[in-house]
Design a protein around this nucleic acid. Structure first.
Length: 826
DNA sequence: CTATGAAAATTTTTT
DNA sequence: ATTTTCATAG
C-alpha cells in the first residue's frame, strides 16, 4: 500500500498569487513566485523606503521589542489589557511585511476559535487582506485536524475520519461498558469519558496511564476499557478531541523525517495564552519548536500566569514558568502598561491577585487617572432574583445615559446563573446575548440533522446511524438496532452496510425490513446527490424526505416551532461553506454560532469565556462562598483550586474598562432549595481605596473599612456577626418601612423582612449554620400541619417533613420545598 | 414499540 | 425546580 502523500506535492495549499520569495532562503517546496502587489512586494517597498512601517507606530518600547525580536525564542508576559493581541498580530504582520516568511510558513496557535478568528481579522487589517494564506493559524485542535487529514494514515486513520463530540463519545463508551457486561449505572460513561479526556490531555495512551487510574474504574478494568475505546474509534475511523492532540504527537515521534519537513516549514511559531497549554499541547509544541542544534528557534509564546484558569482541564502553568529552561537564551519581555482599565479597577484587581502565591509577579500600571472614575462597586442583594432585578435596573440606567448595551457584560461563575438574568431581561424587554451558553450545535434537532448529513457524507459513521435510524419513528426500535449492531460487528462492517445486507435475509420481521429498506434507499439516493447537488439544497431535501421536518411540524409541543426555526437557521449557516464536508468539519470543531453584531445587547457569559474580551461596564454577580470560589474547586484542588478561582476573579475584574460592579446575595437557590450564603472571601481581599459599597449610606460606612469580612470569618462564634454584611445592613436600614405584603415588588428591596436579625430568634437569622447541624439527627422543630411564614413565599401549612427539609403548601406560592431554617411559626 | 409517569440527577469552567 | 432517564403498562 502506498502512502498517497509521498508522491503528492507536499505543501499544496500555497496560493499561486503569492508574491516574491521570502528573503531568507525559501523552503524548497515553495512554488515559483508570481509578480504582483502582494505582501512581500509591499515589504520590499517598505524596506527600500527605509521608513518604519506605520503599524509599528504607537507601540510602547516593550511592545516594540516583542514585535521586532523575531529571531530566537521569546516569552512575552503580558498582563491583562497590555495589548497582547496587538503584539501578536503586529508581530505576524511584521514577519510578513519584512518578507521573512510566507503566510503559510507561520504557525500561530490560539486557544479558542474566537481568538483565531479575531486574530485573522486583525492581521487582515494590518497587511491588507491576504490572510487566506495563513492556513496554520488556529486552535491546537484545528491544526491537529489539518495534520491528521494529511498524515492520519500513519496512525491508522483514513483522511476522511470523523470527529466525535462529547455526546458521541459518551454514547460510545456506554455501549462499551455494557458490552463488557458492566453496570453502566455504577460506572457512568460520562465519568469515564472525562477520565479518558484527562489522560489524553496529559499525553497518556492506554499503556501509559498510572496503575491507580487504571484500577479506579470498572473494577480495575479501566485500562482495558481505554484500549477497547481506542480500538472502537479506529474501526469507526473516528477521533475524539484528545486524539487531535495525541495523534500528531505520535506521528511526529515515529516519523522524524516528517517532523523535519515541518521544521523546515514553520519558520515562525507563535502561541497565544501559553499559560493554558496542557501537557499534550506542550509536547506537541516542543516537537515542532525545538529544532536541531544550531538552528534558530523562532518561537514566541505569549501568556499571563495570573490568567491561568484552565487547570481543571489539564493546563499546566508550569509550562510558562519553564519556558526559559526549555528554550535557553529565551528573551523574556514583560508588558505591564495597561491600556484598558481605570486605576481603580486595576488597583482592585492587583490587590486581589496579590493574595496568590507562586506568581511570576507583574505590576500593572496606567497613567490614566481621572477623578471622575468610579471605584469598583460592591452591591448586596437579598436573593438571586433581586440581584438580577438590580443589575437590570443598573443597566437600564446606563442605557438612559446613552451607553450601549454592547459595551456591557455580565460575567457569571457557572452557567446556571445565567437563567435568572435571561428571565429578568425578557420581562424588561432588554436585549441580551448569551455567549457560550447552550450551544447552537448541541441542540437536539441540530444534532439530529447533523447526524443525517454525517451519515450521507460518511457511510461508516455508525454513531450517526444509531442516532437517526429511528428518528423520526420508523418502527426500528432497540431490537432491530441491536440486531443490526451485532450483525455489523460480527462482520466488521459499518451499520449502514449491515442494514443493506440484512434486508436481503429474513432475519428481521417484515415490518422492520420494509422500513429499513426505505431508509436505505433514501440514503443511497442522497449519497448520489452529494457530489452534484448544492449542499444546502441537498440538506433541505434530506430533512424533508426523511420526514424529519414533518416530525417537528406534527409535534405540538411549545418548542417545536423554535426547533424548526433552528433547522432553517442551520441550512442558512451552511451557505457560507463550499461543500457539505467543509461544513461538517467546521461544525465539529467550532461549536459556536456567530453572534449578530448589529444588535445592541448585553452580553451574558461565564468568566471563562470572557477571557480576552473587554467591556466598558462589567457586572460580576454571585460573589458568594461556595459559588465563587466554587466549592468543588476548593474540595478537589484545595489551595491550588482557590488560587485558580482567584485568578478567575482577577480575569473578571480586569475585563472592565470603566465600570465594574460586583454583587453578592444572601440567599441562592441551589438544587431547588433556598440556601443562605456568605459573601465571598474575595470581597475581603479588595482594597478599600479602590472599592466602595454601593447604596450604603454614610451611617453604615464603617463596614467598608477593609473589614466587612474579617469579623465574619475570624470570630469564634460565627452566628454573632453573620450579618455584618452590606445585605444585612441594608435590610436593617429598610426594616422600618417594610411590611409583609410589599416584599419583592418594589425596586429591589426584597430584603426587608429579615429585619430582626439580631433580636429575633436565632433559628431564622443564621439558616446556614442551622442547616448544617440539623441534617444530622436532630428532629425538626416543626410538625405536620404547622402554620408557618416564609420570607419569600408568605404563609403556608406544612404538609411534609424530611429531616430539615419541609414541604409546605403556601397560600400564594403553592407547594414548595424549603429548609426549615427559612420559616418561622406564623 | 410507544406512551406515561415516577425516580434520579443536575450545577464549573471548554476544544 | 427542572430536566433527563428509567420502568412499567398498554
Amino acid at each position: 500500500m502506498s502512502n498517497s502523500f509521498d508522491d503528492m506535492p507536499f505543501f499544496d495549499e500555497e496560493p499561486g498569487e503569492m508574491a516574491r520569495k521570502p528573503q531568507p532562503p525559501a523552503a524548497p517546496a515553495e512554488r515559483a513566485p508570481v509578480a504582483g502587489g502582494g505582501i512581500a512586494a509591499r515589504a520590499m517597498a517598505a524596506r527600500d523606503g527605509g521608513k518604519r512601517p506605520d503599524y509599528l507606530a504607537g507601540l510602547n518600547p516593550e511592545q516594540t521589542e516583542a514585535v521586532e525580536t523575531l529571531e530566537g525564542p521569546v516569552l512575552v508576559l503580558a498582563g491583562a489589557g497590555t495589548g497582547k493581541t496587538r503584539v501578536l498580530t503586529t508581530r505576524i504582520a511584521h514577519i510578513l511585511n519584512t518578507g521573512r516568511a510566507f503566510p503559510s510558513q507561520i504557525l500561530a496557535v490560539t486557544f479558542t476559535n474566537k481568538a483565531a478568528r479575531e486574530m485573522k481579522e486583525r492581521i487582515a487589517l494590518l497587511v491588507g487582506g491576504a490572510v487566506e494564506g495563513m492556513p496554520w493559524l488556529g486552535t491546537f485542535h484545528s491544526i491537529g485536524v489539518k495534520l491528521l487529514r494529511r498524515h492520519g494514515e500513519l496512525v491508522g486513520l483514513r483522511s476522511d475520519f470523523t470527529i466525535l463530540d462529547t455526546d458521541d463519545v459518551v454514547r460510545l463508551i456506554k455501549q462499551l461498558i455494557q458490552a463488557e457486561g458492566l453496570d453502566d449505572k455504577r460506572w457512568p460513561a460520562k465519568q469515564f469519558a472525562g477520565m479518558i479526556d484527562t489522560w489524553k490531555n496529559k499525553g497518556l495512551g492506554p499503556a501509559d496511564i498510572p496503575e491507580g487510574d487504571a484500577r479506579a474504574f470498572a473494577n480495575g478494568r479501566g485500562r482495558d476499557l481505554y484500549v477497547a475505546y481506542q480500538a472502537r474509534l479506529s474501526t469507526l475511523n473516528a477521533c475524539d478531541f484528545g486524539d487531535l492532540l495525541i495523534h500528531p504527537i505520535a506521528i511526529f515521534r515515529k516519523n522524524p523525517d516528517l517532523l523535519k519537513e515541518y521544521h523546515g516549514r514553520f519558520r515562525y511559531i507563535l502561541v497565544d495564552e501559553y499559560q493554558d497549554t496542557n501537557t499534550a499541547q506542550y509536547m506537541w509544541l516542543r516537537l515542532l519548536a525545538q529544532r536541531p542544534k544550531g538552528e534558530l528557534q523562532n518561537v514566541c509564546c505569549v501568556g499571563d500566569d495570573d490568567q491561568s484558569i484552565y487547570g481543571w482541564r489539564g493546563a499546566e502553568v508550569d509550562n510558562i514558568l519553564r519556558f526559559e529552561k526549555d528554550f535557553p537564551g529565551a528573551k523574556v519581555i514583560k508588558l505591564e502598561r495597561n491600556y484598558r482599565s481605570t486605576e481603580h479597577i486595576l488597583g482592585a484587581a492587583a490587590h486581589l491577585i496579590a493574595h496568590n502565591e507562586g506568581r511570576l509577579g507583574k505590576t500593572l500600571f496606567t497613567d490614566r487617572s481621572d477623578p471622575d472614575d468610579a471605584k469598583v462597586q460592591v452591591h448586596a442583594s437579598w436573593d438571586s432574583e433581586e440581584e438580577a432585578r438590580a443589575i437590570g435596573e443598573e443597566i437600564e440606567q446606563l442605557q438612559r445615559g446613552k451607553h450601549l448595551l454592547n459595551d456591557m457584560a455580565i460575567l457569571v461563575r457557572a452557567s446556571f446563573q445565567m437563567r435568572e438574568f435571561e428571565d429578568r431581561f425578557v420581562t424588561l424587554g432588554l436585549n441580551y446575548r448569551v455567549i457560550g451558553g447552550p450551544r447552537f450545535y448541541e441542540r437536539l434537532e441540530i444534532r439530529d440533522a447533523m447526524a443525517y448529513f454525517r451519515l450521507v457524507a460518511q457511510a461508516s459513521d455508525d454513531l450517526a446511524f444509531e442516532r437517526i435510524i429511528n428518528t423520526p419513528k420508523r418502527g426500528l426500535g432497540d431490537t432491530t438496532v441491536r440486531a443490526l449492531h451485532d450483525y455489523a460487528r460480527a462482520r466488521d462492517i459499518p451499520m449502514l452496510a449491515a442494514a443493506a445486507d440484512i434486508i436481503e435475509t429474513d432475519e428481521l420481521k417484515p415490518k422492520a425490513r420494509k422500513a429499513l429498506f426505505d431508509v436505505i434507499q433514501s440514503f443511497r439516493r442522497w449519497q448520489e446527490l452529494l457530489e452534484n447537488t448544492p449542499h444546502t439544497e441537498l440538506a433541505e431535501q434530506i430533512l424533508e424526505e426523511s420526514g424529519y421536518t414533518d416530525m417537528w411540524k406534527n409535534d405540538k409541543s411549545a418548542e417545536a416551532p423554535g426547533r424548526l426555526e433552528n433547522l432553517k437557521e442551520l441550512i442558512r449557516s451552511m451557505e457560507s461553506f463550499e461543500s457539505m464536508r467543509g461544513f461538517l468539519e467546521h461544525v465539529s470543531l467550532v461549536m459556536d454560532a456567530e453572534t449578530n453584531e448589529n444588535l445592541d445587547a448585553v452580553s451574558i457569559m461565564t468568566l471563562h469565556s470572557a477571557k480576552g474580551l473587554e467591556f466598558d461596564t462589567i457586572f460580576l454577580p454571585g460573589w458568594e462562598e461556595g459559588l465563587f470560589p466554587h466549592q468543588r474547586s476548593l474540595d478537589e484542588s484545595g489551595r491550588a483550586g482557590l488560587e485558580e478561582e482567584r485568578r478567575l476573579a482577577y480575569v473578571g475584574i480586569t475585563r472592565a474598562k470603566h465600570r465594574c460592579h460586583i454583587w453578592f446575595v444572601s440567599n441562592r437557590r441551589i438544587h431547588g432549595l433556598w440556601q443562605s450564603t456568605l459573601p465571598s472571601r474575595f470581597l475581603d481581599e479588595l482594597p478599600v481605596t479602590h472599592v466602595e459599597v454601593a447604596e450604603m449610606e454614610q451611617s453604615y460606612g464603617g463596614y467598608g473599612r477593609g473589614g466587612y469580612g474579617q469579623s465574619r470569618f475570624d470570630k469564634a462564634e460565627p452566628f454573632a456577626n453573620s450579618y455584618s454584611t452590606p445585605g444585612w445592613k441594608r435590610a436593617q436600614a429598610n426594616k422600618t418601612d417594610a411590611t409583609r405584603d410589599n416584599w419583592g415588588t418594589r425596586s429591589g428591596h426584597a430584603v426587608e423582612r429579615i429585619g430582626y436579625g439580631e433580636s429575633g430568634p436565632k433559628g431564622r437569622t443564621i439558616e446556614g449554620e442551622l442547616v448544617a447541624k440539623s441534617t444530622s439527627t436532630e428532629p425538626s422543630r416543626f410538625t405536620l400541619g404547622d402554620r408557618v411564614f416564609h420570607l419569600k413565599f408568605g404563609n403556608g401549612n406544612i404538609t411534609g417533613i424530611e429531616g430539615n427539609k419541609l414541604t409546605i403548601e403556601f397560600d400564594r406560592a403553592g407547594q414548595k420545598r424549603v429548609l426549615d431554617g427559612f420559616v418561622e411559626r406564623a
